[in-house]
Design a protein around this nucleic acid. Structure first.
Lengths: 253, 253
DNA sequence: CTTGACCTTGACGTAACGGCAACCTCTATA
DNA sequence: TATAGAGGTTGCCGTTACGTCAAGGTCAAG
């Protein structure tokens, strides 16, 4: 007994178009009826289809499945274990995405009455979220890929309490920076405060702080106007960012 | 000041090809230098690109992003909340996938010395994994989509202990079925045992058992030779499946 | 003989670009 | 001033795993 395309389709739930496609790419070749050229599938095709769809549920590509089916079971098991890693990584990625999304939504749902805090939080959120694409390549090149990944990871794992503390630290930074920007005294105690708070703030997401990296970050601050806008806005003074860069450059040694 | 394609590319890490594509589809249109036709981006393009990539990290399609950018913030927030649902569903799907993969791997790594148990477990696993594609449409049609989804869900959430119990129940079923198949006595106590064990086994994954559904399943057993092979193999008698169908048909009322 | 169901191949469309080719423009240098 | 090299342009093909026609051949039934 052989199955026609439609018969096999109805038996397995796989569309005729898909069966023709699998035939075409050699994944599930069909025999041909010599008189009319119709495709004919032996009963074994049902099980082969099962295997194909089975591997497909785990996210294998069809070319990979084609190879897998020809391999011994040990190799198949190894490939499954391999795929497990990828799926787990994907899930972890989704989890961190959900975390940042939740924070973003929380900030947005703070509502329009707390526009300042909202802007603040959402912007910082956006900065950090886009940190990778924005400065990822540069930071990776300068300080190594692992440290950057670790930083992102550390941020993703911040608890709500940590996050609140991080915000409080930044507020203290703004306060001190306001004083220094007004006075212009880089040797003052307030200037030391600025440096200390900024380092403290960084260490919420950096896990191996170095003065060199801190100076490098200041360079990046100086080079990108959006950082300047951010600090000038939140401190409320037009030279705040410039002052911050000067302070970091002076104390990070 | 305007940016050339490459300047914007280096500033944002987005490839020139991608920028041209975004221009082409109208997502991030560029102005043109009238003398040479070169693309020119105003500084605001940087922030627009940031927003685009920001939404992209959350899995929005470019067409959706194009719509979103034109909408007020409340609508954007709603869309983000909506996307959260989808991402969460995707993660949950990955989690159940990982669970089944782990079980499959555990069975496969049981090694070749326990070939029988391995075959047993892996096959049942495969049956259940492919349950959806194989009988999903039919079962959904007969018993409703929700009950089928719930069944799949229930299986995915089985603990390791439940799973062991489920296996033990099936072994007991095989034992009783062996007796009944040999004697052929559908009125015997062993036959009652077969029915009870099979119902019990089903209830590991069904959460609203009905006799009608049970009889329907028996019909499906009778119609598909792979079920017959499965039971005949594991009971070790050529008429085991047939006997099982007869028992179910008799007692499920 | 016709009708309708089934089969065939072939071609186009999908999302978001990557990569290449052919050709044009600008700038710096020998 | 000729030229090399960097950077710009458009356009086309390829990617995945099929869905969706379209044009035409085959088969069983009335």
């Amino acid at each position: 007994m052989t199955y026609s395309v439609q018969a096999l389709s109805q038996l397995t739930g796989v569309s005729p178009r898909t069966l023709r496609y699998y035939d075409q790419i050699g994944l599930l070749p069909a025999q041909r009826n010599p008189t009319n050229g119709y495709r004919e599938y032996p009963e074994t095709a049902v099980d082969q289809l099962q295997m194909i769809r089975y591997f497909q549920t785990f996210g294998f590509q069809l070319t990979a499945i084609q190879d897998l089916l020809a391999q011994p079971k040990a190799a198949q098991t190894a490939a499954l274990a391999d795929q497990r890693q990828r799926l787990a990584a994907e899930r972890d990625h989704l989890t961190t995405l959900l975390n940042t999304l939740d924070r973003t939504l929380a900030a947005r749902n703070g509502g329009p009455q707390m526009t300042n805090a909202e802007k603040f939080s959402a912007f910082k959120q956006a900065q950090l979220d886009q940190n990778d694409r924005q400065f990822g390549p540069e930071v990776r090149q300068r300080y190594g890929a692992e440290s950057f990944a670790a930083s992102q990871q550390k941020f993703a794992n911040l608890s709500e309490a940590d996050y609140q503390q991080m915000q409080a630290t930044e507020q203290a930074l703004f306060q001190a920076l306001r004083t220094v920007t007004r006075s212009g005294d880089l040797a003052s105690e307030a200037a030391q405060q600025v440096f200390t708070r900024h380092r403290q703030w960084l260490c919420f997401t950096w896990n191996n702080y170095t003065a060199e990296a801190h100076r490098g970050l200041a360079q990046m601050y100086a080079a990108d106007s959006r950082f300047a806008d951010y600090y000038n806005d939140h401190v409320g003074l037009p030279d705040a960012a410039q002052t911050l860069v000067a302070v970091i450059t002076r104390y990070a040694k």
